[in-house]
């Protein structure tokens, strides 16, 4: 039957309705999602990714910023990004050095860091006005935080020539921070700013 001219058209072919189920397909899709996620997350959890650092050897965060990990601390490959971040770990503790370009006064970056800790980790932040200076010339402010997953100390320093904020973060499970505090302090003191030899 053709529609056209002035011809009125009555009900022609009754359209067929397809009936089908989607149970099997849905189970397959759900199964695939679970397997895919489980495979990658499981594999990642099984690979340790620690790199031993020989005692006394410096770890370079960038070409100009380095620190020396304390004895028995290993570099975490997954938490290291060349040029901006280096993290060393030991048991449930971690020490990271992060570099970020910053063109304004240090205060603004400190306020932002504290806000991130409060909002993202649900942590309570204490202090913030305590200044620090290391023998290698790094200076700035430090504060303490305590969250659901652990507690830590943050040192934030300003490198005016490179317009860079250097954030040192020491993190431990609850109760372990004090035990590692001397090692953290040694690593903070070891941070050097200067071109790689």
């Amino acid at each position: 039957m053709v529609i056209g001219g002035g011809t009125g058209v009555g009900v022609g072919v009754v359209p067929s309705r397809e009936r089908y189920g989607t149970w099997k397909g849905s189970v397959l899709v759900l199964g695939f999602v679970c397997l895919w996620e489980g495979f990658w997350l499981g594999w990642d959890a099984l690979v340790p990714g620690r790199e031993e650092v020989p005692p006394g050897r410096a770890v370079y965060v960038s070409a100009s910023v380095s620190f020396t990990p304390a004895a028995a601390w290993s570099l975490s490959r997954a938490r290291t990004t060349p040029g901006t971040l280096a993290t060393v770990t030991r048991r449930s503790s971690a020490f990271s050095v992060r570099l970020a370009a910053w063109t304004e006064r240090l205060d603004g970056k400190v306020i932002q860091e504290r806000r991130i800790l409060r909002k993202a980790s649900g942590a309570r932040v204490f202090g913030g006005d305590q200044s620090f200076h290391t023998g290698n010339g790094l200076g700035g402010v430090r504060f303490y935080y305590s969250g659901v997953n652990g507690e830590g100390l943050v040192w934030m320093g300003w490198e005016p020539r490179a317009r860079t904020v250097i954030t040192l973060r020491a993190e431990s499970a609850h109760g372990a921070l004090l035990r590692h505090l001397p090692e953290f302090q040694r690593m903070v003191d070891s941070v050097r700013i200067g071109e790689k030899a």
């Binding site: 990658w40 997350l41 594999w43 990642d44 990714g49 490959r77 997954a78 990004t81």
Partner: peptide, 24 residues
């Protein structure tokens, strides 16, 4: 939602197996 954790896992594996330079 489904991509975020697996992307993290693959990039983490790339760093662990190939090194941070390779992962970057």
């Amino acid at each position: 939602y489904l991509v975020i954790p697996v992307n993290g896992a693959v990039e983490s594996l790339a760093a662990k197996l190939g090194g941070p330079e390779f992962a970057a």
